[in-house]
Amino acid sequence: MTLLAITGLTKRFGGLLVFDQLSFSLGRGERLGVVGPNGAGKSTLFNLISGVVAPNSGSISFDGSDLKRSDAWTRCHLGIGRTFQIPKPFGDMTVFENLMVAATYGRGLSMRAARAHCDDVIAQTRLSAKAARPAGSLMLADLKRLELARALALKPKLLLLDEIAGGLTTAECDELLSILDSIQDQAISVIWIEHVVAALTRYVTRILVLAQGRAIADGSPSSVFADPKVRTLYLGEDDA
């Protein structure tokens, strides 16, 4: 069953062609990893899906509805939750209030129900000790975790993770993976953009490789990293 279908997506920034007729789809409950060199348009892909920027052409359909004309908040209400590569917390609000925004406005819970739900998410993401701190005072590892927690507070159908393991120590990365594993039973689909391939392959079941505005490989992690085109891209060697 398809949750997200991207067809012929094209995006230009001035003269720069970021995506050229990109197409792929994602099934319900599927975990997709997206890799590619810097500038391959990975974060732009999330901005297009979450409605932060508009495509030049092509379509994105989610859970049966066409997203073409939808605002970011409408897409959120449909069940798309995301993190930002560079954390964008509500800095003067507490960590708990950051989650409350997602639970009340994103998920549509009442204040009372949202409080109980956010208490759970805070515990699940191990942010309890920092719940009452202003989000702007957190260090990077906690900001990344807050990004994840805020997206989870939406109870999304599709979770978009933008380099949440980037810049973390091995221990912090392991903790992040164990948090991600703790949500596996919620049947949400995940797209995870990551440069830390070791972390990615421990979680996703499928990998999409983006380069020069196109998907150059798509499949299981082992088959994708065995692909000569991908090896050339990453290692600069020629298998021929």
């Binding site: 409605g51 908040w73 959120c76 995301r82 964008k88 609000m93 925004v101 997602a102 998920r107 549509g108």
Partner: peptide, 16 residues
């Protein structure tokens, strides 16, 4: 307050 702190993130989290 969310809009004041981080407008684009507020939009992505459902605030019209």
């Amino acid at each position: 307050r969310a809009l004041r702190d981080q407008e684009s993130a507020a939009h992505v989290f459902g605030i019209n």
